[in-house]
Simulated assay, not measured.
Amino acid sequence: MIDETKLAFAHPEDRAQATAPNARDRISLRDHVVEVEIGAFQPERGTTQRVRFNVVVEVRPSDAFETDDVDKILSYDTLTDAIAAELAAERLNLLETLAERVALRILDEPAALRCFVRIEKLDRGPGALGVEIMREAADERPPASDRDAPHPRVVYLSNDAVASDQLPGWLDALEADGTPTILCVGPADMARPVSGAKPAQRRIDLLAIEQNAWVLAGRDPRCLVVSTRTELDWAMRHGRITVWAPSKIVLDAVEAPPAGPVASVRLAQWFAETMHAVEIVLAGAAPDGGADLPLRRVDAAAATLL
C-alpha cells in the first residue's frame, strides 16, 4: 500500500517510480520557516517560535511549457501567500487548524488537485514537532466567497440599555430585520479585582465583560452567548442573536485590540471591524475614537433601535 503523504515529501524520483504511470505534476515549497506566535500552552503566549512549512501541491496539466505563460500555472507565491494570510487572520492554538486552513486556501485555486501540508515547531522540543495532512479539491466545493460568514450588525449595549424596558422590543425589531446581529456589552457597574500584572488584568477585564454578557443572556433567552468565530458564523447563518464573549477572540488576535473597562466601546468597534460588520449601533454609549464603518447612536431608552 502506497503511503501518499510520505511520498509527497520524498525525492521526486522516488515518487515518480511509486506512482507511475499515473504520476501528477507538482509544485512544492520546502523548508519555509516563519517566526509566529502559536500554541495552546501558556508559555507559548506572548512570544514567537520558529515554524517550518513544507507544502506540495498536485496540479492539473497545462500547456504553460509551450507558451511560457505565467498566468497558466499555479504560482509559487500562492503557497507562501496562503501561509501568510492564515497566520495574519488570527492567532491559532493548533498546528492542525493552521494546516487545514492553508490547504483549503490553496485548493481554492482552480489548478490545484491535491495538497500535502507539513508544519513543524522547531523550538518546542529536542526535535521538530509537527503534523502532516493531505486534502483533495472537491468537485462541488463552493467558492470561497460562498463560504465566507455573513456580514453582521454589531450592537453595543450600555448597562442602562441592558436594563432598559425597551430591550425585548429591540430584539423583536432585530429579528424582524433579518440582518445577523451580534450584541456587545461592557463590564457591569461593580468593583473588580485589580492585578499588578498586565496579562492577568487583561483577563480579569475580559472576564468582567463576559459576566455581563451572561447577565444580558439572562434577560432574554434569544441572547446566545458565544466565544468563538465558528460559533458566531453558525449562529449568523441560522438567524440567532448572539452576545459576544470576547476572551478567546481577543487573546487569539494577531493584532491585539484594546481591552479593559475604559476601552469596552472601542473594543466593540474593533470587533465590528474584524467581523466586517455592515454597521455598529451604540445604544446608550458614545463612540470611543474613530470607526472605519457606519456608526449610529441611539438613546438607552429609545423606543426603536433601527
Results as ranks from 00 to 15, higher is better:
5 T>W: 03
8 A>V: 06
10 A>C: 12
16 A>G: 09
16 A>H: 08
19 T>H: 13
24 R>L: 05
30 R>M: 09
31 D>G: 11
36 V>C: 09
37 E>M: 14
38 I>W: 02
39 G>Y: 01
42 Q>F: 08
49 Q>D: 11
50 R>E: 04
58 E>D: 14
60 R>P: 03
60 R>V: 09
61 P>W: 04
62 S>T: 14
69 D>Q: 12
71 D>C: 13
74 L>E: 02
76 Y>T: 12
77 D>T: 13
92 L>S: 15
92 L>V: 15
94 L>S: 12
95 L>C: 10
98 L>S: 08
98 L>R: 01
103 A>P: 01
104 L>M: 13
106 I>M: 10
109 E>H: 14
134 M>A: 15
135 R>F: 06
138 A>M: 14
143 P>A: 02
145 S>N: 00
159 N>K: 08
170 W>V: 11
170 W>L: 06
171 L>I: 07
184 C>Y: 03
185 V>F: 03
191 A>F: 08
200 A>V: 14
213 A>L: 00
226 V>K: 04
228 T>L: 13
229 R>A: 15
230 T>R: 09
231 E>K: 04
234 W>A: 12
236 M>E: 05
238 H>A: 10
240 R>V: 00
241 I>E: 07
246 P>S: 09
247 S>E: 13
251 L>G: 04
261 P>W: 02
267 L>H: 10
268 A>K: 00
268 A>L: 00
268 A>D: 01
271 F>E: 03
277 A>C: 15
282 L>V: 02
288 D>N: 13
290 G>T: 09
293 L>F: 08
301 A>R: 13
302 A>N: 03
303 A>T: 12
